[in-house]
Write a protein that binds this DNA or RNA. Structure first.
Length: 507
RNA sequence: GGGCCUGUAGCUCAGUCGGUAGAGCAGGCGGCUCUUAACCGCAAGGUCCAGGGUUCGAAUCCCUGCAGGCCCGCCA
């Protein structure tokens, strides 16, 4: 009688009962409602046992429990603003109506109610209900009221159940939204223009990643989903826009773990007539604002910790100096490629025999330095080979003007003075192609794709500029204290369901 | 890709040495006019992830697979 199917059957029976009494099963609207928080506000100065007879309020939301006491009932109702208790009495509704209402209600149902704001004798802010209607019957029961939905698999596969049963989860995504809103407000205030550029591209470039492939029927060509926003935004600098940014999804056809999602949100920003030092100033101004936006959603201790951590100025480390110091080795730049590759491989780092100087140094840096960067730290002036889209350093030979921001051992953003010399850009693209491993498949390899049209754009003249990319998901992890990137993504990708929880099959 | 762990009622979880499957919540019936994880009584509810094997007998032991988690590796 109470297997899953039977629970649904019971709820359907109640819905039909409600309909058979002349009510619509799924009414079209519920006008003039106020947030439940308004009723709490109404009762701010009302003592226990008192009520606001001068008011009639309408609220709507999901029922979290039903506590029946014979001729009274207490029914906590939740909406986005919080919770308010519905207080039902035979004295208010009459025997018949009281029974009719309670006959059809279950936890999880969405109802609308009208009544008088009232504080119970115990002082709980409530709405003493004069009329109530079902707005949407929940055919499936909600998760256990005290523990909620714990199963990590179901929480991802059926995020809506996770959300409807856990205000804290909803709150985390409200916080994410608040952070992104603040990001926009801040950048708009600095005069940046938000733009949208194509997701489907002939060549996936501007980053180092394996792209998703798709077919564009109209153009009769295979396209890639973008792996970065960079090259289109720089085309806009050529076009005369001086401060632009985009917040959007990028797609990298790679593994997922607690720090990586194949589909993730990225901010990229380009700023004409500035260099990477100007950009550091922008970041130091931005992050404290974002920490401030996240603060109301955090414990006071966490909020203070963030505020202190991101108070500028932050530490600045020269890439090579840091690597030489932490590894206890000098003259790294003078060493031949083979020696660096051997060094990295001897440490057990995943570096191919035919790997480049840049990759080897990157891996060595990741091994020796990155884990130590707990407080916000700018790592600056990377070796040239690591970064084909950055401008050569004006003073340090063999290096580029670039910085990455590290915090708690992982990268939060990546910025550089942009390369705007078309000949240098063309040569650097070619170097990338040449260094590509011999067994790489065309279009399926992780390399900076050669974008000839981008080089052509540079030939029209791009102003000197700096640019930055910020991984929004990681940023939210840091600001909201999430352990996994899945915790800040509403609907992370999941594998085809196994034998449990298969909700993808049509009936 | 490697190692470890998990999968039992709609939900949260027990299940001993291999011997008929357990609780709480939710649901049903009854009681109760101020509860808030309401309470009290009664009855009901199972593809023990799937498939195979060992055994007189498997939720339990073995193998394979599926899904998930953690660590490592890979990957900006």
């Amino acid at each position: 009688m109470t297997s899953g199917d039977d629970l649904s059957a019971e709820r359907l029976r109640k819905r039909d009962l409600w309909v058979s009494r002349g009510h619509p099963a799924y009414p079209h609207h519920f006008p003039d409602r106020v947030p439940s928080a308004q009723i709490r506000e109404d009762l701010k100065d009302t003592p226990p046992g008192g009520s606001r007879e001068d008011l009639r309020r309408r609220v709507a939301g999901r029922l979290r429990a039903i506590r029946q006491h014979g001729k009274t009932a207490f029914i906590p109702l939740e909406d986005q603003s919080g919770e308010i208790q519905l207080f039902l009495r035979v004295d208010d509704l009459g025997e018949a109506e009281y029974a009719r209402v309670l006959d059809v209600l279950d936890p999880g149902d969405i109802v609308g109610a009208e009544g008088v704001p009232t504080r119970t004798r115990r002082g709980e802010p409530s709405l003493r209900v004069l009329s109530l209607q079902l707005l949407a019957k929940a055919i499936r029961p909600p998760p256990e009221k005290w523990h909620g939905l714990k199963d990590p698999e179901l929480r991802l596969r059926q995020r809506y159940v996770d959300l409807l049963s856990s205000p804290e989860v909803r709150r985390r995504f409200e916080a994410r939204s608040a952070v992104i809103r603040e990001l926009r407000t801040h950048l708009d205030g600095l005069g940046f223009l938000e733009v949208e550029t194509p997701i489907l591209n002939r060549t996936a470039s501007g980053g180092l990643a394996r792209p998703f492939r798709t077919h564009y029927n109209y153009l009769e060509e295979d396209f890639s989903l973008r792996i970065a926003l960079e090259l289109h935004l720089k085309r806009l600098l050529v076009g005369g826009f001086e401060k632009v940014y985009e917040i959007g999804k990028v797609f990298r056809n790679e593994d997922m773990d607690s720090l990586h999602s194949p589909e993730f949100t990225m901010l990229e920003l380009y700023w004409a007539y500035s260099d990477y030092r100007d950009m550091m100033g922008l970041v130091e101004g931005l992050f404290p604002r974002l920490a401030g936006a996240a603060a109301p959603y955090l414990s006071p201790e966490k909020a203070r910790e963030l505020e202190e951590a991101f108070r500028p100025p932050w530490a600045r480390l020269d890439f090579l100096e840091a690597l030489e110091k932490e590894s206890g080795t000098s003259g790294i730049m003078d060493r031949p490629r083979e020696e660096l590759v051997r060094w990295a491989r001897d440490l057990g780092l995943a570096v191919r025999e035919d790997s480049t100087v840049g990759t080897s140094l990157d891996k060595l840096f990741g091994h020796y330095v990155e884990p130590k960067l707990r407080r916000p730290t700018f790592v600056m002036d990377h070796p040239l080979e690591t970064t084909p889209l950055a401008k050569r350093h004006r003073e340090k030979p063999g290096r580029v003007e670039r910085f990455e921001l590290f915090y708690r051992g992982f990268e939060l953003c990546n910025a550089y003075t942009e390369l705007n010399d078309p000949d240098d850009q063309e040569a650097r693209f070619r170097d990338q192609l040449r260094d590509r491993p011999k067994d790489a498949l065309e279009g399926d390899e992780e390399t900076y794709g050669y974008d000839a049209d981008f080089v052509e754009a540079l030939r029209f003249g791009m102003p000197p500029a700096s640019g930055i990319g910020i991984g929004i998901d990681r940023l939210c992890m840091v600001l909201l204290g999430a352990e996994s990137v899945k915790d800040v993504i509403l609907f992370p990708p999941t594998r085809k369901p196994g034998s449990r929880g298969d909700v993808s099959a049509p009936p």
